[in-house]
């Protein structure tokens, strides 16, 4: 599908996507290879099977990587930061923080001028790209990851939500409060940890008396 006026395509093509992913991966690897950061190009396994950049990062280098991605690679949008509790992950993997970042093409924003860029014309660091950064933490009772609140504004509330629900601490985050759970939730209560189980977990019955054999009629105790 292409623009009627110029004939350029609106869509970002698969080649652009592939080349952008490869360029980003090689830049990251050359810059951060000594820090233990490993970047690779993975493909989505269904649909249009687009490529994305998958990065594994040790926790101590996360802030540096985030700053480099934002300022040198143009990753301007922090989509989501989420945390996962792995009680059975072994000695290496107790907690996992996954950050999804995106590169939005923003060119020369001037007021009164809408740069309606056509996807087919974008090149280099302007091509939209998805990034997935995985940070694996060893098992501990106080998992900690540096906060990227200073790098992306969008990371602020994402980190609050991750701490609130999963319990991963973000070092350097200002004003960490409960955002989805009530403000007076018990300290240390983080519902998405695996030891908290729902009643219907594993398809166990939710009810004590499912068919109501123990219930009384409405006018029990009232009829003499």
């Amino acid at each position: 599908m292409s623009d009627k006026a110029t004939g350029a395509s609106w869509m970002v093509s698969a080649d652009q996507n592939e080349s952008a992913a490869k360029a980003a991966v090689s830049a990251i690897n050359s810059h951060f290879s000594k820090a233990g950061v490993v970047a690779s190009v993975l493909k989505h396994s269904s649909g249009s099977k687009r490529s994305y950049v998958s990065i594994e990062c040790p926790p101590e280098h996360w802030l540096a990587l985030a700053k480099w991605l934002r300022f040198d690679n143009g990753v301007n949008h922090c989509s989501m930061i989420t945390g996962i509790h792995h009680p059975d992950g072994g000695a290496d993997k107790g907690w996992e923080v996954v950050a999804h970042l995106m590169r939005m093409p923003v060119k020369n924003q001037e007021p009164g001028v809408a740069h309606v860029m056509r996807g087919g014309e974008l090149e280099g660091n302007d091509i939209p790209m998805e990034y997935e950064v995985g940070i694996i933490l060893p098992p501990s009772t106080t998992p900690t990851v540096p906060s990227v609140q200073s790098v992306w504004v969008g990371a602020d509330w994402n980190e609050k939500e991750t701490w609130d629900l999963v319990g991963i601490n973000f070092e350097g985050h200002k004003d960490m409060v409960r955002v989805l759970n009530p403000h007076d939730s018990p300290v240390g209560f983080h519902p998405l940890q695996k030891q908290h189980r729902l009643r219907y977990d594993g398809f166990n019955e939710m009810y004590d008396d499912a068919q109501g054999f123990g219930r009384k009629p409405i006018d029990a105790d009232k009829v003499k």
Partner: peptide, 8 residues
């Protein structure tokens, strides 16, 4: 101009 439908 950012729309996931054309960007990804």
């Amino acid at each position: 101009n950012y729309d996931v439908r054309w960007a990804h």
